[in-house]
């Protein structure tokens, strides 16, 4: 059987993680090609509807990564992101959405190695969990109250 190739989207901030991923490139550190980056100005910009949109369109996993606490280019954006995530995670758990598939991390502009590790570990984890087919079932069941749709 061919190995499952997960689709993973990374939402990263421009100043730390995007630059960190650039450094991974400059240092020629190899990592899995399953992760594709979408650039944001700051993790504070990452509205969690964006994560939902990614799952809706078939993402198997998501990475959200920005500057370390205290290092935000805009002072406080990453704190807002972190706080929002704490609240939002509960809502996701409540809705039956698999929060294991969302990887939150801090990768600075100097941490090229760390970015490769984050990517490879996330790909490995998502490979183990398998494709995310359940999200749309959950979404449909919430909308149409289909019975049994949430069963794994």
């Amino acid at each position: 059987m061919q190995e499952f190739e997960p689709k993973i989207v990374a939402f990263v901030c421009n100043w730390c993680t995007y630059a960190g991923a650039d450094l991974t490139g400059t240092s020629r550190i190899k990592y899995s090609a399953n992760v594709k980056i979408i650039r944001f100005p700051c993790t504070g910009r990452i509205d969690f509807m964006i994560l939902m949109k990614a799952f809706e369109n078939g993402a198997d996993g998501i990475i959200v990564s920005g500057c370390h606490p205290n290092d935000c280019h805009y002072s406080t954006g990453n704190f807002h992101a972190r706080r929002r995530w704490i609240v939002f995670r509960n809502l996701l758990n409540f809705s039956g959405i698999d929060t294991e598939r969302i990887q939150f991390s801090w990768v600075s502009a100097a941490e090229g190695f760390k970015w490769a590790d984050v990517v490879n570990n996330t790909v490995k984890k998502i490979r183990e969990i398998g494709p995310y087919e359940n999200y749309n079932k959950i979404a449909v069941s919430t909308l149409f109250k289909e019975e049994g749709a949430t069963n794994e």
Partner: peptide, 9 residues
């Protein structure tokens, strides 16, 4: 400065 925190909120 265009951080966008307000947009997400």
């Amino acid at each position: 400065q265009g951080c966008g925190t307000c947009v997400a909120l």
